[in-house]
């Protein structure tokens, strides 16, 4: 899976979770960029990403992710692994 392919799916996940079809995310996107991205929606987002990509993050990874790019890095690592 390429980084572009991950983003294609990931944009759809973000749009579904935040119920906003205009959302497009990139490597530097953080919770500061999406108004509804609070702690509860963060949980929903992580679960939706896990389901979409059939990956399981661990708690340490979730706590350390600084932006969407780091989430994509982990998704790609899992896909390679």
């Amino acid at each position: 899976m390429t980084r572009a392919e991950v983003y294609e799916k990931l944009n759809k996940v973000f749009q579904d979770v935040f119920d906003d079809e205009t959302i497009t995310v990139h490597d530097e996107t953080t919770s500061e960029d999406i108004e509804d991205w609070d702690s509860l929606e963060h949980i929903n987002l992580v679960v939706a990403v896990e389901n979409e990509f059939d990956v399981d993050f661990n708690m340490g990874e979730v706590n350390k992710m600084k932006n969407v790019g780091e989430m994509v890095d982990i998704i790609l690592q899992r896909a390679e692994g």
């Binding site: 992580v46 708690m59 979730v62």
Partner: peptide, 11 residues
Amino acid sequence: AELHESVRQLV
């Protein structure tokens, strides 16, 4: 139905 350990969520 589901368990998500990363965020300690139970569905």
